[in-house]
Amino acid sequence: MMDHNLHGQDALAHYAACPMAEWPPALRAHLAECPVCREEMHWLRTVEAALASWPLAEPAPGFLERLLERLAREQVPARAGQVLPWNIWVPAMTLGAALIIAALALPPQISQAWEPAISEWPRQVAPWAAEGRLTLDRGAFWAVWSGLFVATGGVGLTLALSAWNARYTRRVEEVKRALSEAADHLLKMAHRPS
């Protein structure tokens, strides 16, 4: 049996908004024997019926014209020459940085096949490494190099994916459609008798 606590009355408000067919048997049974809840349900249903056709508050006549007139005076937000949004240029910069770091970190001996160890580093990486105080065998070097590249690239890719939205999906669909139409066009041209 439902009691008259707050939870019970919230449940009444919930069911008042539902068709009676959806009322659970326990609620029906309770309403049949409880005049307090029956009364509450009556008022909730009355209000629910009124809310179902509740009209919008209408602005005064001429409001739309005034609004459009005011908006017409507003400048177009800067778009031409606008820098790309951060969620595009940050991933692009990150990927670019990953490539640059990878290129700079490439020691000169890397082109020599099967060099047993790397002891000469370009000065751009770190002066102390270039002075020969850092020696890595080839396996360790590739592990660090690949790890650095993959990690930085991964950050860029994560940012790019997190920035993905419905607009980009639509653009991809548009590009796919355009490519498909271009392919159809080319096929037709190829099959056209000369």
């Binding site: 005034r66 609004l67 005011r70 937000p77 419905a166």
Partner: peptide, 22 residues
């Protein structure tokens, strides 16, 4: 409410390039 509505559309117009469609 009219003033507020006007302000809403001014803000929306300025912020529209940032609307991501989410």
């Amino acid at each position: 409410a009219e003033d507020l509505t006007q302000e809403v559309y001014l803000r929306a117009w300025r912020a529209l390039p940032d609307f991501r469609g989410d």
